[in-house]
Each structure stands twice: as structure tokens, then as C-alpha cells.
Amino acid sequence: MKLFKRSEFVIAAILLLAMVVIGLINPAFWQLDNIFSLLRSNVIIGIMALGVLIVMISGGIDVSFPAFAVAAMYLTVKGMIYFGYDGVIVPFIAATIMGMLFGCLNAFFVYKFRMIPLIVTLGTGSMVRGFLLGIVGTSMININKMPDALIDFAKTEVISMDKADGTHFGLTAMVLIYVGLAILVHLVLRYTMIGRSVFALGGDEEAAKRVGFDVRKTIFFIYCFAGMLAGFGGLLHSGMIWLANPRDFVGLELDVIAAVVLGGASIFGGRGSVLGTMLGVFMLVMVKNSLIIMKVETTWQRVVVGIVIVIATAMTAWRDRKRNA
């Protein structure tokens, strides 16, 4: 019986319902190539959402990760071109470390000055983006210059198929990376003391200190881990779209936070799950992408996303009110 009470179950149920509805409106939704492309669209938002999930469980909020992601991505790609390096592993390590360093900056302000995470991450985000565009450069690196190794890596597919008319389609292997990272985050949150300390911090910071958690370590872990995921996701994104654009990811924070909230994480901290977040991300991406299938003009996308956020948050508010009563 417990299963039905879990928020993941509710989200999954709503998700299934939405899929059925969309499928009824246009059966093309269920075609394999559409499903594959949907899954592909999950990858980057999903990786970022994992980072935001960790921050949100701890009771914070992060709006700086798009800036961190784009900075790590652009600097790495620029570096690769500068050094003429064409590989995969080293660049990803570099981008991840850069993300981590940016994350340290957040952690420093949040821990040292006890500043509200929203304000801190607003500041660091605009700083990092300003630094990138103001000092590093504003020009796009397009397919001509993009390191081939990155593009080839991101082209890897787990399933490759041909349609009846001969066109090729497939499921990108990046989905596996996303799922792998999700499992990793789940394991860290569920089975390590540092992961549990994130929940403890989000539940009651004072109690966490009294019990003997090292709050500083936890805060640094949270923001650095979120930064790492952002850096990694940023570079992966450029490989997947064959382009390194220093103006990329503007406004992504809104989508990602919305997805995490849709996934049942509490903005007050202490609650949230990887599975829920993945479902939330899928829901958001699906709604966005399916508007075309449902023959709604693309300009309506943001309106629909906004309404979805409002409805989802209104539902959680309603649920929580019943719990409090």
C-alpha cells in the first residue's frame, strides 16, 4: 500500500496519463524515433537536475549552474582547440573539475557568510557568465572547429535503426551516461554518510550540528557536486549539438528547477529523490516536445511550461496542506 503513497508513484501515474493523452491526440508520439529523441532531450536537463536536486534536498537553491556549465564547456573546448588536443576523457575531467571549482565558490559564500543560497548563486552565476563573455570571448565555436572526438563520442548510439524510407535513427548512448550518473547520485544520497548528511542538513541544520555532522564538509560537497554535474553536462551538451556557444543555457535554471519541483523535491529541503527528479525531467521535456506533435504552435511552449509549473506546485501545496492538517 505504501507504494501508492509515494510521490514518485503519483508523478509516474500522471506521466503515464499524459503520455496516453498525447498518444491519443497523435499516435506518432509512440513511434520509436520520437521516443528516442525525447530521451535524448532528457540527458542534459536531467544531469543538471541531479545537481539541483542535491542542493534542494539540503534546503538551498541553485541558479548558477547554467553559467557554470557554459563556462566549463566553453573553456574546455577553447583549451582543446588551443592545445590541439582531440580526446574525450581528459576534457571531461577538466570540465568537471572546473565545475567543481565554481561550486566551491558557492559553498564558500553559503558556508562562510551564512548567505541565502538564492542570492549567492545569483551573484556567482552573473559573475561567471560575465567573466566568460567579457574576458574569454563571445564567439561561437561551430562544427568546423569543434574537436571531432567530442562530436564522435556524443554520436555513439546504443540502438541504431533504419526507418522504412531508409532514414537512420537511433538512441544516443548519452542516455546511458545520464542513467549512470543518476544511479551514482542515488547511491551517494542513499548509501553514504555524506549523502545522508545532505538530508540531515535539509531536515534541521541545528540538529545536524548537534549530532556531529561536519556541516562545512556537507555544504562544500553539495555545491561542488552540483558544480561538477553542471560542468560535465555542459561539455556533453556541446558535443551533442556540435557547437560551443558561450551564450548557451540562458534561462535553463527555470526549466531545471521546475523539473526538480515537479519531481517531488521540497523547496524547503529534506525531501527529494533521484527517481522522482528523473520523472519530473521527463515530464517537462515531454510536455515541451510534444506540443509540436499535438500541433500547437511552438511559441506556446513557454506558456504551457509555465502553466505546468503552476499546476504542479499548486498540487504539491494542496497535498502539503492536507498533511499539515
Binding site: 554518510m193 545522508r196 540531515a200 535539509g202 529534506g270
Partner: peptide
């Protein structure tokens, strides 16, 4: 000083686990 968002079991075990400097949680 309990954690409302965690289960009874975890609240009880946390101190011991922390003192033992456990890294991995065995449920």
C-alpha cells in the same frame, strides 16, 4: 534535535554511525 524528514531507524542509528566514522550506510 531529531530529523523529522528521516525515519525512526535512521535517527537512532545516525550517532553511532557518525561516531564509527562510517562512510557507507548499510540499511
Amino acid at each position: 534535535s531529531l530529523f523529522g524528514n528521516l525515519t525512526v531507524a535512521e535517527n537512532l542509528a545516525l550517532n553511532t554511525e557518525l561516531r564509527a566514522k562510517t562512510k557507507i550506510v548499510s540499511w
